[in-house]
């Protein structure tokens, strides 16, 4: 299953709940304000680092760019994908859960 999260982790706990309920091995894609989760040195770092051990964590490049988050600021292990990668993830997974 592909999980997408579009909320900042500092405003909503969508990412936290997703990580608690997502089956190990799931793909997790951060989009829109969800990309604020992957900044190195943030309060989310340890949680996201943990998550990269159990899941594959992606952040959507155009949304990072739009928010001025450079790739060298990302927590290690987080993969950046473009819109094509988003489409590929959605196609490769049989289901998508969009956490709001």
């Amino acid at each position: 299953m592909l999980h997408t999260i579009n909320k900042s982790p500092f405003e909503k706990n969508s990412l936290g709940t997703c990580l608690r309920l997502a089956k190990p091995g799931s793909d997790i894609l951060l989009i829109e304000d969800g990309v604020y989760s992957v900044i190195k040195g943030s309060a989310m770092e340890s949680k996201v680092r943990e998550a990269t051990k159990e899941h594959t964590v992606y952040a959507l490049g155009p949304d990072l760019k739009a928010r001025g988050i450079e790739e060298n600021r990302l927590i290690e292990g987080v993969k950046v994908v473009g819109y094509d990668g988003f489409v590929e993830l959605a196609a490769d997974n049989d289901r998508v859960q969009s956490w709001l």
């Binding site: 299953m1 309920l21 997502a22 089956k23 289901r95 859960q97």
Partner: peptide, 8 residues
């Protein structure tokens, strides 16, 4: 709950 979600 994790298991239930996987079944959907």
């Amino acid at each position: 709950l994790m298991k239930l979600m996987e079944e959907q």
